[in-house]
Computed example of a mutant assay.
Amino acid sequence: MVNSFDALSAREPELVKLRSAVRDFLVSDRAEFGWQPGVDSWLAGWDEEFSARLGAAGFVGLTIPQRYGGHGLGHLHRYVVTEELIAAGAPVAAHWTADRQVAPGLLTYGNQEQRERLLPKIVAGQLYSSIGMSEHGAGSDLAAVQTKAVRADGGWLLSGSKVWTSGAHLAHQVVVLARTSPPDPEHRHAGFSQFLVPCDAEGVRIEPIILMSGAHHFNEVLFDQVFVPDADVLGEVGNGWHQVTSELSFERSGPERILSTGPLLFAAIRALSRGPEPDDRTAADIGDLMARLISLRQLSLSVARTLTDGGDAANQAALVKDLGTRFEAESVGLIADLLEAVTPDSELTPMLRTAWLHKPMFTLRGGTNEVLRGVIARGMGLR
């Protein structure tokens, strides 16, 4: 019998065993291959060989049924693995979106051919997917999407553009949300569909969006009369909005929404522990950061349990994303202040630099926090 505290800590014996196995893998893999922990590693840490090794070790595709090569486990198992990977700053970006969002979408809405073709590659850590949702003028308000697909012989012709498309320049495919029927002002969320579009398809052009640091994670993806066969429609035509909002529960509530700066925080605490005993102010600041992180983790775990039980967690996921990404952004300055008393080292310096550069993105991606508060209010019947 799991008590309420254990339920908020993911301490069931099988989860404890899985957590230990992931930690052992990370220690040995880092020792052999030399990757360095990174802040925001699920966006910035693109390492295809690591993703393949992780898949071979059995830590990708945990929720995918065994008939597709997966492990047939639950969302809590995936949560435990995800948490350990992000906390360690492991380079997981290559397979991240495919495992987090595409796999649940295929299992819920995909056809049998799509599942048999794509799910085994996801399990192997060898499918790299991007998500085409946001557009110029349609960031968090996806109902304003202008990209459209019109009927053609045997499929659809897709035209428009997507922006802030993470990893598209390296991905095999982009999952595109497009309008497939004329806008209806009375039903803004009607008439959308999703398409699986190869990044090398004729008519697809990918333009880089370079960060101030010179890093390349984001892209603008342009579609010029791209032919998409009926076989590559994901789910039902016209059901795209429902599919996307269901998918966002997985995107918004995971450990990556509270632990992007975790490797920096943990490294800072280790560095402080090697110095003089901290004064009361320093100890209080560390305690505050850790207390907030633990509380957010328990909220995030509660969403994972709801998803495990087949429940709708869209509102709770939006709340976790709002609180979690605010914590991530605020933690950067607090950690920087704590580190003023510490001699910079080769581990802390690059992580702190990355954290400062990525800080403005934390509360934007996955839906701005301002828009999410409207989602939460509507979910509570307040507007």
Rank of each mutant, 00 (worst) to 15 (best):
S134V: 10
I86A: 11
I258W: 01
D345R: 04
G89A: 13
P344N: 05
G367E: 01
G324V: 09
G238I: 08
L319H: 12
G287N: 06
E207N: 10
N369K: 05
V27D: 14
D6V: 10
A341G: 07
G203K: 01
S9C: 12
L196W: 06
L157S: 12
R19M: 04
L119V: 03
P185C: 04
R151Q: 13
G74V: 03
P360V: 00
T261M: 05
G155M: 06
S130C: 07
L348A: 05
L265P: 03
N239Y: 05
E12P: 04
G275V: 00
W156A: 03
V320G: 04
F266E: 14
L8P: 00
P185F: 00
G139Y: 09
Q146R: 15
G366Q: 10
H172S: 08
D279T: 06
A56V: 05
D200R: 12
G374M: 09
D200N: 14
D337G: 03
G240V: 03
M212C: 00
G191C: 03
L299T: 11
S193H: 03
R115G: 01
G89Q: 11
P263M: 09
C199P: 00
D24Y: 00
P65T: 04
V221K: 01
S41Y: 09
E277V: 15
A52R: 10
F227T: 11
A304S: 14
P198K: 05
Q316V: 03
G379A: 08
G324C: 07
M212S: 10
Q126P: 00
R19Q: 11
